[in-house]
Design a binder for these strands. Structure first.
Lengths: 186, 186
DNA sequence: TGTTTTGTGTGACTCAAATCACAGAAACAA
DNA sequence: TTGTTTCTGTGATTTGAGTCACACAAAACA
């Protein structure tokens, strides 16, 4: 839980009493490698705050092909956001790649926290702002970047993921075939 | 200004007094067709709320090619967000396609509004949430959608833009060549 | 431990979309 | 009105990346 507190503290200073109240809105969950936190068609009950481990958020298109929307590791948030916020059934999957722990937050608790604590509303806004900017940069890269540039940018942004996850998955994140990616770094 | 009020009101109810205070943070600007609100290298002073007109937010890559990140019309917000939020120089351009009016908001005023009015912080969070979801859906489409599917989705989401702006620009938004797009609807 | 599954590199082939090139249409300006 | 620029459709050609197919390596497993 201390990780969560430090994380919030970076953006909005909170005192002990406040944190005691805030933390009651989260529940802890241990996750094993290969375990699914979410599958297509599920009700999207939670957003997750990653304490440890590595996870992938992905979907499958009509031809059974996988595309990775997001990797998540320590201090990241993840969910099937379109469905979470609109409270619709999941169109995505979340799978654990490296075992770890996550904190679960329901939409109801998220809204309650935001309404009760101006600081938490501020916290979520700042997080969303950063997330929005990151997505715009990714769109830029998808629109105009060559596979080469996308790969280099990925390596620059997530050097640690480069070592810990198979290249195959990086290809799925970049929207490039496994083979093409493999030919890039020769 | 009434448009702004209605827009905020949809998300967070505010009274006359509050709105009087809120609106002092915005300045009005008339924009002509062809006019640039922002160019690469500029200081990004404002985020804009569109009262009327149509605008494109785009950037130019190394080979002089244009890519459109966002179209904006009535009730939309626009800026070079990565630079606006980090207060760096612009990497993008904003050009007016159909003349109209915008309200300008500085980052400082945006933060002030958020800090002073919990309601405004809530408002911005909700807008950001919707924006975040929209970007994720666009990434999905860029990753796995064929040019055909991207075009159809665009037509579904923005039927009015389809009529008002040249197909060439739609191609730049979808990340498809003008010629390929032209061959899609035969 | 050996066995199965999953990941990776590499060649050969295919194909969808980009690029190049042109002409007529529409919009705009003087 | 006429000239000029921008937009759009369409053919011919090129090309980058996807797909297919295989072999070997590495990891997971039992």
């Amino acid at each position: 839980m201390e990780k969560l507190r430090t994380h919030i503290q970076h953006i909005a200073p909170i005192n002990d009493e406040e944190f005691e109240e805030i933390k009651t809105h989260f529940t802890l969950k241990k996750v094993r490698k290969g375990q699914y936190l979410l599958s297509e068609g599920d009700e999207v009950k939670h957003e997750y705050f990653v304490l440890s481990g590595i996870y992938k958020v992905f979907y499958i298109d009509g031809q059974e092909k996988e595309y990775i929307l997001q990797f998540a590791q320590e201090n990241w948030w993840m969910s099937d956001y379109p469905s979470f916020f609109k409270q619709k059934d999941a169109t995505m999957y979340i799978e654990c790649l490296v075992e770890g722990e996550v904190l679960c937050l329901t939409l109801q608790n998220r809204e309650k926290l935001s309404a009760t604590f101006h600081k938490m509303e501020h916290f979520f806004r700042v997080k969303l702002t950063n997330g929005y900017v990151a997505l715009q940069l990714r769109i830029k890269l998808l629109l105009s970047g060559t596979p080469q540039q996308r790969y280099e940018e990925f390596a620059r942004l997530y050097p640690n993921l480069m070592q810990q996850i198979p290249k195959k998955l990086i290809a799925e994140f970049l929207g490039v075939s496994r083979e093409t990616l493999s030919r890039l770094y020769q």
